Computed example of a mutant assay.
Amino acid sequence: MLTERQGERLPDWLDTVRRDNLPSLRTLAAGIDRDAVIAGPTLPWNLGAVEGHVNRIKMLKRRMFGRAGFRLLRRRVLLA
């Protein structure tokens, strides 16, 4: 379903999971946001660039932990 980018098959998979006797998959299926999960492999765009920026900011924050306040962190994020 994911490698072939066929998100429209998700509702059938969720119905199959609900009928099976696998409690961990039932819990997963109950917590899924159907529209978001169907859109992921179906639509042609992604959030890779945004995730890259978030990852970069988190790395800067971790490296600076305990060393300075928000003002320095803000300056490093904006200048990097």
Rank of each mutant, 00 (worst) to 15 (best):
G7D: 03
D12V: 07
D35Y: 14
L72I: 03
L14G: 00
V54Q: 06
E4A: 11
F70W: 07
F65S: 09
L14R: 02
M59R: 15
D35C: 07
A68Q: 03
H53Q: 15
N46Y: 03
V17G: 00
I38S: 01
A68P: 02
K61N: 11
K61P: 00
W45F: 12
F70V: 08
A49F: 09
F70N: 05
R76I: 09
G69W: 05
L2K: 11
A29S: 11
S24P: 04
H53C: 14
L22S: 11
G31P: 06
A29C: 02
M64G: 04
R67P: 00
G69L: 01
D33P: 05
T16D: 14
L47A: 06
N55I: 08
R9K: 14
G52D: 08
K61E: 12
V50Y: 08
R9M: 11
P44F: 06
F70R: 04
L28H: 05
I57H: 00
L78I: 09
L78K: 04
R34V: 13
P44A: 03
N21K: 02
D20R: 15
R26Q: 09
L72R: 04
R62L: 13
G7C: 09
A36S: 15
K61G: 09
P41S: 12
T16S: 12
R71V: 09
L22M: 14
N46D: 14
R75C: 02
D35G: 14
D33N: 12
N46P: 02
F65A: 11
L47D: 07
V50P: 01
G31Q: 10
R26L: 04
G7S: 04
H53K: 14
R19E: 12
E4S: 08
P11M: 11
L22Q: 11
A49I: 10
L72P: 00
G52Y: 05
G31C: 05
R62P: 06
T42V: 10
L25P: 00
G31V: 11
T27G: 12
P11G: 08
F65P: 00
R5T: 10
A49M: 11
F70I: 09
W45P: 01
F70T: 06
R74L: 08
L73V: 03
L43F: 14
R71C: 07
M1T: 04
L72N: 03
L60M: 13
A29Q: 01
R63E: 14
G48E: 15
R75I: 09
P23G: 01
H53Y: 14
T16P: 01
R18E: 12
P23M: 00
G31K: 10
W13I: 11
R34D: 13
I38A: 04
I32N: 03
L72Y: 02
R26T: 01
G31A: 12
W45H: 10
M64D: 04
V77A: 04
D20T: 15
I32G: 02
V77R: 00
R62N: 14
L14A: 01
R56D: 07
V77D: 05
E4L: 12
K61R: 15
P23C: 01
I38F: 01
T3F: 15
L79Q: 03
M64C: 10
A68L: 09
A36I: 15
L28T: 04
R74A: 06
G48K: 15
E4I: 05
R9L: 15
L22K: 12
R62Y: 13
